Amino acid sequence: MRRTPLRPVAARCLAVPVLLCLLTIPALAAQCGGDFNRFIAEFSREAAAKGISQQTLSLAFSGIAYDPKVMEFDRRQRGTFKKSWEDYARTRVGPARVKRARAMMQKHAALLARVEKQYGVPKELIVAIWTMETDNGADMGKLPIVRTLATLAHDCRRTDLFQRELFAALQIIQRQDLPMKELVGAYAGEIGQTQFLPSSYIKYGVDYDGNGHVDLRRSVPDVLASTANLLAVNGWQRGQPFDIGTRNFEVMREWNRSEIYRRTLHYFAEQLK
């Protein structure tokens, strides 16, 4: 994961509003702060009471430790997107990235056409998201997701939010969508080629290749369909524009709340038409 001050995935914090997450991720209330091991023990008891197996808990939390670098990065992200849109877009949508995105559109043309037909989200926008987030899976991050989310959940500023994300990560492990060694990602716990947080993974993930698992790291069909599904479920209007001021531009807030980031996605998508 390229770590620039304007990296959107950590800045957005959640691809889904908290109230929507509450519909699928049960609330947990382990006491934040204090001893990290005590926090993990209390969280584990609550997670077990809500259906997470001891096998999953042992696999996830064996040898876990607090990661101070995660909190350092989290605090540095305050004030993201202070550049003008023009300056930001210039750094995010260069000729090399547009060329790469066009190559992906050609390579996956049939798949993208099928996803667009089913979900109504333009293929150009799907590929723009895919490319801006991770350069089409080339740069997904290397941090252990469980350790990252446990560290963020232990911090008392947003403990409820990240306790739900940590629980969702345990659900991903329990469902065997990803093996523990591949549950790695970015500094706010994002996973996969379009950087879903675990609650979004659970809520919007689609098994589009039909293998019985939602794999947002290695399965391009799952990645592209899940990305489109997130927007479709949140009210995307098929065949309508998605530039600033439109209903679809507002729907894109469920992807990223930054107006500059959404304007850049629209600009990128326009370059791919």
Rank of each mutant, 00 (worst) to 15 (best):
G63P: 03
F81Q: 05
D74K: 14
G34Q: 07
F61E: 00
S62P: 01
S53P: 02
D74E: 08
R92D: 02
A27K: 12
A48K: 12
E86Y: 11
K69E: 14
L28G: 05
L20A: 08
S58C: 04
D87T: 13
R45T: 13
A30V: 03
A65R: 15
T80Q: 13
L23K: 14
S58T: 13
I52H: 02
S84H: 05
I52L: 07
D35K: 06
W85A: 12
L28V: 09
W85S: 11
K82L: 12
E46I: 00
W85D: 08
W85C: 13
R76P: 04
R38E: 10
E42H: 04
D35Q: 08
D87F: 04
L57S: 03
E46T: 05
D67F: 01
S44M: 10
A47I: 03
S62G: 08
S44N: 02
S44I: 02
A89P: 05
F36A: 04
I25K: 06
A89I: 01
F81L: 06
Y66P: 10
L59W: 01
Q77R: 15
A60I: 00
T80V: 11
Y88M: 07
L20I: 13
S58R: 10
L57F: 04
L57P: 05
Q31K: 14
F43K: 01
P26C: 12
Q54F: 02
F43Q: 04
I40N: 00
F73W: 08
F36S: 05
F43A: 06
T56Q: 05
R38V: 14
M71G: 00
N37V: 04
A27S: 09
F61P: 00
